[in-house]
Design a protein around this nucleic acid. Structure first.
Lengths: 149, 149
DNA sequence: TTTTTATTTATAATCATTCTAAATTTAGAA
DNA sequence: TTCTAAATTTAGAATGATTATAAATAAAAA
């Protein structure tokens, strides 16, 4: 099953309508390699739906998050909340300089779930594994004032 | 070396003055088991420094963060940024219901650093490993509308 | 001292996100 | 088809954490 299907079916099974706006948001989330913010999603879909409201984007994202189909990465060096539709355990790696976020498949994160569950007795609902540093390209350039995190 | 010493020395070595306000903030960060927000720190220190300004708290936190002595956890189910002076690799585990955050020592997170460095070529500066779920106490109570993340 | 610089403070400004109420769309019944 | 009620979208206002600004204070240097 494609990730897009997963997202739309999640909405349907929650009894929600598959409106064109919601489909477009799911499509973007499923296909992007980025880790978009609400504003970024709004900007990219705006051309298809000139009347689109930011509230719709936030509502849809919140719904998908509370249904467990989308992950919230939180702020990543900027002042925007980033979202990630890839729910497979993986590491998100952000460059504090160019603000790009990439995914790293990791052997060890796969084991974290059970390790944490056993140690804590929590019922896990999600994770946010975000490392930050300087990407190879930005390491080449001189370091300036540290970014605020 | 105590964690408090580490924090104050970090400030000094950066050429900054050890003002009473900054010392109090470092002390609180070093001694708390919580993962306080700027507002929480402000509230707790206010009694010692009635004239304290929130700006001072934010400034000091930002400085400590950019010096790599304090970690920013980001939002944790509420709308506040949480800080953590424990820089040892560990898992932060937040309950989405009672909003408590606890630390979990983890064998696997210790290995993540080298794994990520090798896979990406990034120069790592920090990490934010935050899992969320329901703590044992909150699992007992009935589940209500999902919290927005 | 006097001068310079760092720091704190109070307050205003910013801006991402949330809220609200009206307008629109939809699914299903008649 | 048309009607009706519920869901959804929308525009714009409101919220509130954080940041910026400029004046006041404190400390260090001369």
């Amino acid at each position: 099953m494609s990730n897009l299907q997963h997202l739309t079916e999640t909405l349907q099974q929650a009894g929600m309508r598959l409106t064109p706006q919601r489909i477009a948001i799911c499509k973007l989330l499923a296909e992007t390699e980025e880790h978009p913010t609400a504003a970024a999603i709004y900007e990219q879909i705006k051309s298809q739906f000139p009347s689109l409201s930011l509230a719709t984007v936030y509502n849809t994202l919140d719904t998908l998050v509370s249904l467990g189909a989308v992950n919230v990465l939180g702020h990543a060096g900027d002042d925007h909340v980033h979202y990630d539709a890839d729910m497979e355990p993986h590491v998100n790696l952000a460059c504090v300089k160019c603000h790009k976020i990439i995914d790293i498949p990791s052997e060890h994160v796969h084991h974290l779930d059970s390790e944490i569950t056993q140690a804590s007795g929590f019922k896990l609902l999600g994770a946010r594994v975000l490392y930050y540093g300087l990407c190879p390209a930005c390491q080449a350039e001189p370091v300036e004032a540290a970014t605020t995190w």
